[in-house]
Every structure is written in structure tokens, then in C-alpha cells.
Simulated assay, not measured.
Amino acid sequence: MGKIKSALELAMEKTADLKTDKQAVKKNMITREGKVSASGFLENPVHSDLKEKLKSLKGEELGWFKTGAAETILANMTLPRMEADLSKLPPLSNALVVLSGDKKET
């Protein structure tokens, strides 16, 4: 009678030859950081680390970070449906200004 393998053993056998793409993992992590930083900026611009992160990154890492941040900012943009929604527009505008590198925050 043969040995019955557990699901973990079967999964380990099937994935034994897989290699991780360290560049893709790094890109995913930095993009996620951008999303989190942009979200924090939208919640509380004064205590956000978005500006510092933008200054600390260079090259393709900066591009990945900006992509994640832009996705979050743009996902939060909607046309105002009521008067209270108008208060959400200035933080979104400021976040885009910070992300673009312009100096004119409102």
C-alpha cells in the first residue's frame, strides 16, 4: 500500500522548482507603500510620510511608489454628490500636487 501524501507535501512537490522574482516582489512592496502613504496623506496630510518617501526614493523605485500613490488618489476621486463631498476635493488636489512635485499646495 502506498503512502498518502498531505496537501502540504503535494504542494511542496509541485512548487519545488519555482523561483521567486525578487524584482517583482520589490516592485509590489514599493507600490503598496505608495498606496498606504497616499491613503495616509488623504486622511491626515500633516502627519503623512508621503513627502519624505518621495524625497528618499530614486529611479524605478520612485516610479513604482508614484504609481501606487496615484492609483489610491485617483480611486478616491469622484464627482461630488452632495455638499459634504466638496470637502474631499482639496486633500485630493493637494495629494496630486505633492505627487507631481509642484510647490503649490492649497
Rank of each mutant, 00 (worst) to 15 (best):
E52N: 09
A75D: 15
P90Q: 10
E33A: 15
E33Q: 15
L62A: 10
V97E: 01
T67M: 05
K35F: 01
K26S: 07
L10W: 04
K88F: 06
L92H: 02
L8E: 12
M1G: 14
L42C: 03
A16C: 01
E33G: 00
E83C: 06
P91I: 08
K58T: 05
G63S: 10
A69W: 00
H47K: 15
G34M: 04
R32P: 03
G63M: 07
L99W: 02
N76V: 08
T31L: 07
L18V: 13
V36R: 05
T72I: 06
S37K: 02
E83G: 09
P80G: 11
N44V: 07
H47V: 07
P91H: 06
V97R: 03
D49M: 09
A69R: 00
I73T: 04
G2L: 04
P80W: 07
E105L: 14
A95Y: 02
V98L: 08
L18I: 12
L54V: 10
S56I: 04
V98H: 02
G40R: 06
D21N: 15
R81C: 08
K55N: 15
A75F: 12
D85F: 06
E61G: 02
K19R: 11
W64V: 00
D17H: 14
L42V: 04
N94A: 12
S56W: 04
M77E: 12
G2E: 12
G59E: 04
E9F: 03
W64A: 00
G40K: 06
D49V: 11
K88H: 13
N28A: 12
S39F: 09
N76I: 09
T72N: 03
V98K: 00
A70V: 06
K53G: 03
M1A: 13
E71A: 07
L89H: 01
P90C: 07
A16V: 05
M82A: 15
I4R: 08
N76D: 14
K103W: 01
L54N: 05
T20Y: 04
G2I: 10
E60Y: 07
G101W: 01
E61M: 05
A24T: 06
K51R: 14
S87I: 14
K58P: 00
P91V: 07
A84P: 00
S87R: 14
G59P: 04
W64C: 03
N44F: 02
T78A: 15
I4A: 07
T31Q: 06
H47L: 13
M82E: 15
G34T: 08
L79Y: 14
I30P: 00
L89E: 11
A24R: 08
N44S: 13
L54Y: 00
L8Y: 08
L10Q: 13
M77P: 00
N44R: 07
N94P: 05
A7S: 09
L54C: 07
H47E: 15
T67A: 06
V98I: 12
N94G: 06
A16R: 11
S56Q: 10
D49G: 13
H47N: 15
E52L: 08
L96M: 15
D49P: 01
L62P: 01
D85A: 12
T106R: 08
D102Y: 04
V98F: 01
G59F: 08
S39N: 13
E52A: 10
A75W: 11
D102M: 09
E43F: 10
T15L: 15
E105S: 11
E61D: 15
R32G: 03
R32L: 06
E61V: 02
V36G: 01
